[in-house]
Amino acid sequence: MLRRILNYIENLHIDPDADRFQRLDARRLNLFAFSIGVVLLLSGFRDLLFGFKSYFWILFVLGAIFLLLFFFTKARQNMLVCLVGIELSMLLVFFFSSTSGFENGLSLYYFLLFTASLFIFNTRKTSKYIIIVFVTAFVLFLISHYYDFRIFSIGKAGNLEFLKNQRLVTFIIVFSGLSILGYFIILKHFIVLELYQKVLRSEKIISDMRAKLNRKDDMDLENLVKLAMNDDIAFIPKIKSSFPNLYDNLMEINPDITSEEFKLCALLKLGFTTKDIAEYNHISVRTVQTRKSRLRKSFGISADTDLYKWIDTL
């Protein structure tokens, strides 16, 4: 149930045709807008429990605004709107952190907003917004520090029970927020690494095929390998047009060849390793090994025959 709710929050209004980086950025903005809205609402209800009705309404309205941004794609994906949202959040942190001294712990929210800005404004065009966020936080913190974080006053702000509750809630929220953003750091790192390794592997496969075929311009190997790596349905028609005799030669040996067997032969023809086939087809290495064994039986290939050399003879 929780997983379905999280999937809904992450994937709301995301274009299914977007690439992996675009989807990752959209999910991050979804989570940011939704989580900020929820945090503001929860903080408002907490203040209401302690009798601060006016602050409850301030936080409630701001929380409602962020939740509305979550449901309206164009507003949420507008970087200027995001900047205004973060700046308003900075002013809230400045106000509440300057009511009862540094010990209330609310200054920790600055660090959460720092990290959020690094994720949201992650292009060269929007990097200037990061500077604005950092400068704003620095100036506001200096002002609070100058007045010993006691610029504003709230009637019950000095209440010991309230301060303990405030510190605990602040720590939990900041910890949770940084954990979510940290998850996206690791996820994006792995996606970049995976794509980089895929590029290196495709270049090697293409280079080996060029050398083997002794061709340079008469075959679109780049697109062929890309389709194979993406497990695209267009791969089979493309391999048949690139190697027109491959399917016919396989049919002569085994007229009952299956589509799965032909796809495996096509990948072997391109020089894909067992690990490559498993990774790009989202199956286990053991499954690929089993399919190779079945292919040997189906085509009567002896165990001492190299499958790659056998496929190259066709």
Rank of each mutant, 00 (worst) to 15 (best):
T99P: 01
I9G: 07
D148E: 15
H282N: 12
F45P: 01
T73Q: 15
I301E: 10
Y308M: 04
F152W: 12
E194F: 06
Q197V: 05
R291D: 11
I206Y: 01
N30E: 10
T313G: 07
R215W: 06
M79G: 06
F121I: 09
K164T: 10
D47L: 13
Y55P: 00
L118S: 09
G105W: 01
N223E: 10
F94Y: 13
D276G: 08
K269D: 04
I283W: 01
W57A: 14
L221A: 00
V81D: 00
T287I: 05
T305L: 08
E279N: 12
N249G: 11
I86E: 05
F52M: 11
S107G: 02
G300P: 07
G177Y: 02
K156E: 11
A33P: 04
T126S: 15
V39N: 03
F66T: 05
I311P: 08
A64Q: 06
S35E: 05
F114G: 09
F184W: 13
I154N: 07
D217H: 12
V38P: 01
D220S: 10
E252N: 14
S97V: 03
V93T: 14
S43I: 01
S176R: 00
L246A: 09
G44N: 11
A278H: 10
L29P: 00
L68F: 14
V61E: 10
A266K: 04
F243G: 09
P255N: 08
N30T: 08
S43G: 13
Q166A: 08
S107W: 14
M1L: 10
K309W: 03
K297M: 10
I301L: 11
F94C: 03
D15E: 02
S202G: 05
T305Q: 13
L112S: 09
L41Y: 03
L59Q: 09
L31P: 01
S298R: 00
G37Q: 03
L246S: 06
L68K: 10
L24A: 13
N245Y: 09
D232I: 04
F121H: 03
R28L: 15
I253A: 14
T123M: 09
L6K: 10
R27S: 07
E203G: 01
Y109N: 13
L267C: 08
M229G: 05
F71R: 07
L160K: 14
A64P: 01
V192W: 14
L200Q: 13
